[in-house]
């Protein structure tokens, strides 16, 4: 198996932890894995991405454009930003909840998150839209959006990992007191 996966969102949304969970799951299955992360200034509310390459054959962690099997978008506009990386017939899992940039809030730029979702619905056949607000309400926390998205990614069939692989990764990486919430998040809306 070989998979190229891009996680993207806004700094602070938890993309790096999600990337580490995928890596843990791959390590557990002895799959070769390379990743590259955005660390630094952009973590302060800027656009961030993680590139993940699972399986043999890749030399660099950076995925070339048009070669991602799956994009997991933590934010609609950020998913659209990464869309040129998606391969033909690739899958997108995206959170419906948009994060307004400060520049748009103060009227210096424009941003319409719903237009991004409509664009994705038109352009991406294999699309899963996750209702993050509903998830947060039902789970009682908005902090596990990353795990909710990973659950949806498993069920899209393009992550190349199974639920039990991620459960094991959660058990390895998540503190005991948050584990139950994270496990529920993984199967939310299953």
């Amino acid at each position: 198996m070989s998979k190229n996966i891009i996680l993207c969102g806004v700094g602070g949304q938890g993309t790096i932890l999600a990337s580490r969970l995928i890596a843990s799951a791959c390590m557990g299955k002895d799959l070769p894995i390379l990743t590259a992360e955005t660390i630094g200034m952009a973590q302060r509310g800027g656009s961030v991405f993680s590139h993940i390459r699972i399986g043999k054959g890749a030399n660099s962690p950076m995925i070339p454009k048009g070669q991602a099997d799956l994009i997991i978008g933590f934010e609609p506009g950020e998913a659209v930003r990464q869309l040129p990386f998606l391969k033909k017939n690739g899958a997108v899992v995206v959170s419906k909840r948009s994060v307004m940039p400060v520049s748009a809030m103060i009227g210096k730029s424009k941003y319409d998150g719903d237009a991004m979702i409509r664009y994705l619905q038109k352009e991406v056949e294999h699309l899963t839209v996750v209702d993050a607000d509903l998830a947060a309400e039902e789970l009682g926390s908005s902090k596990t959006l990353n795990v909710v998205l990973l659950g949806a990614a498993i069920r899209s069939g393009e992550l190349g990992l199974e639920e039990k692989d991620l459960v094991k990764a959660l058990e390895e990486r998540v503190p005991e007191r948050f584990l139950e919430l994270n496990k529920r998040s993984l199967v939310w809306n299953k």
Binding site: K65, G66, E78, Y111, A115, E123
Partner: peptide
Amino acid sequence: NVAHADPENREQAPDLPVRPPVLC
């Protein structure tokens, strides 16, 4: 062997959010 053109010839995307890093 690595064609990097947008494989789907997608329609022009709506204007992307401008997202420079900001104070928390």
